[in-house]
Design a binder for these strands. Structure first.
Lengths: 334, 334
DNA sequence: TTGAAAGCGATACCAC
DNA sequence: GTGGTATCGCTTTCAA
């Protein structure tokens, strides 16, 4: 292993000088700087991460906590993960990937053993049991999602309430009066995922404001689930002409089933879907969607973390405004 | 922060004793052990990871290198990632998640700065430029995939050649004489992903052995791509009755397109698909599949790593035998 | 502008 | 069976 002492010897300076050249924390004469940098390159020096962490109480590592659930869309999950990892590297941070199955103790372990400088937690529920633990940890934390009581924890997420309203607005503007919501699977509601509830609230509120009677149904991710969901919706809304789909997993199946039932999209039914960009890609038509912005959410989560670590920012809650991407799956009601 | 000295003081022993209690590297009297363990719990002591790494030259961290590609199935990717992370925790290891976009330098950085004890690299290509770097790193490495020249690097993967043969055998045994392969997207072949080539070789070999004339076509992940692929196949194989699909992304689309063309599965065309379990779940029928075993591959990769770290094992190449799960998408040819 | 040296918090060797 | 202490490689204060 090549250590800072090796570099110092090679460059003919003290090891503290090498350290300062690398950190830029004090001014160095151009000549010394050059010599040191040359030695660093020539020897292929990389500071020992553990030693550095020990001396500086900084790891340059972010811990990202990932859910291990069947009911959460992998595409969305992966979007967050890659976005967080690539964003973190821009700040010279690496990412430690934790799963949820260690529970709150896992968070405590990582924070207390100084394996990371901050925690990013995905898939946060309304009354998430991890939240109180995180608040007690005195470790900068950013939640992807929005619990009921974030306290002094930072949060970032899509504004799902606004997203629902945007969908309703779009369909209503096109003249649709008989619409419905195909929601996430029942399991998602049951465990109190905050985004599902926020979307549903936004939907309900927007339809009421518009004076629409609009049922909503959760939808299990299977053929039978989709059929059942559609059946129930049609009982409540027999003259259905517009669907908001907030369920990545069933979208393809749903479109097939509509076709099978003789409903053309968009001639008979307009469909607007909420989900990751990839969801729309593999469909037979260009869908009207409200993209989930996983990329932005991940990037912003990292940016917020960096600001907190720099001490230049207080905790904040940021909900990203959704936008609607017009496609060919929604049309004017005639 | 609570340090080992705090625990030592609390338990009335020396810090070395605390260390030995925790590591179990020398015998301790039951009484001392109990006192120390009680103190550890009471104070909520977690050893400082950096300090530990510095003193022991062990990080208890595995670095997992993830590809950032559009053409690789996220479901498969995520399967590996979760499997590696959860398996690693069983050995008290954490996982640092790296992406490929730093290139070989990123691997060097992580290894040289002692951020991890070993590297796991996914999505390895036949002539992967990272392989020579990895071999020069003197850091235990396990590849998920199989390059042409692994050298002394360990490898683990599904035996894709055997998987292809299994598919062909299944269809042939059912009496199908006019079959074809729907392969991964052209991009996957072009960059020389090892698994695509191995599958294709297995397919070609098996069909030749059986005396079948069986065309194969790559397939782009879009509606048009699927149509085009089917068209080309039907030109070469007009009396098609059996399809092997080695392309998770297009499976759903392909099944729809077959239906649209009036081909019933399995009455007119038998379909056997290679992919993750999740791929089959959202289809309208129980598919006959050859599962990718991402879970096993990830777990075995970790186990191999652990054995290498323990010094109890030389590098090895392990190709997992595929199995075929009978479903309703393949039937006897009458 | 630079160097010397005191930690950081563990591990593991050497004594007893 | 236990304690003392050198050591790991870096950061950062203090001195010059």
């Amino acid at each position: 292993m090549v250590s800072i002492a090796d570099v110092a010897r090679d460059a003919g300076v003290s090891s503290s000088t090498v350290s300062y050249v690398l950190s830029g924390k004090r001014s160095i004469s151009p000549e010394t700087r050059d010599r040191v940098e040359a030695s660093v390159r020539r020897l292929g020096y990389h500071p020992h991460a553990g030693a550095r962490a020990l001396a500086s109480s900084r790891t340059n590592v972010l811990a990202l906590v990932m859910p291990l659930r069947a009911d959460i869309d992998v595409q969305v999950l992966m979007g967050f993960v890659t976005s967080v990892v690539t964003s973190a590297r821009k700040y010279d941070y690496d990412v430690l990937l934790l799963t949820n199955d260690e529970g709150p103790d896992g968070l405590r372990r990582v924070a207390d053993s100084a394996m990371a400088d901050a925690l990013l937690v995905m898939d946060v529920e309304s009354a998430d049991p991890r939240v109180p633990v995180l608040r007690s940890l005195r470790c900068p934390t950013v939640l992807i999602g929005l619990p009921d009581e974030p306290g002094d924890l930072s949060c970032v997420d899509l504004d799902f309430s606004a997203a629902a309203k945007r969908c309703v607005q779009h369909l209503a503007d096109l003249g649709h009066e008989h619409i419905a919501l195909v929601g996430p699977s029942p399991a998602v509601y049951e465990r109190g995922t905050s985004f599902a509830g926020r979307f549903l609230n936004g939907f309900t509120e927007a339809t009421r404001t518009r004076g629409l009677n609009a049922p909503s149904q959760p939808c299990s991710p299977s053929y039978d689930g989709v059929r059942e969901c559609l059946d129930k919706i049609l009982v409540e809304q027999p003259r259905l002409t517009g669907l908001v789909v907030h369920n990545e997993a069933v979208l393809g199946t749903l479109l097939s089933e509509l076709r099978a039932r003789g409903s053309r999209v968009p001639e008979d039914v307009s469909v607007v879907a909420v989900g990751p960009d990839e969801m729309a890609a593999n469909q037979p038509m260009r869908l009207t969607t409200v993209p989930l912005l996983s990329d932005d959410v991940g990037r912003i989560a990292v940016e917020m973390t960096m600001r907190e670590l720099a001490g230049s920012s207080a905790p904040e809650v940021r909900l990203l405004s959704p936008r609607l991407a017009h496609g060919d799956s929604t049309a004017q009601r005639d």
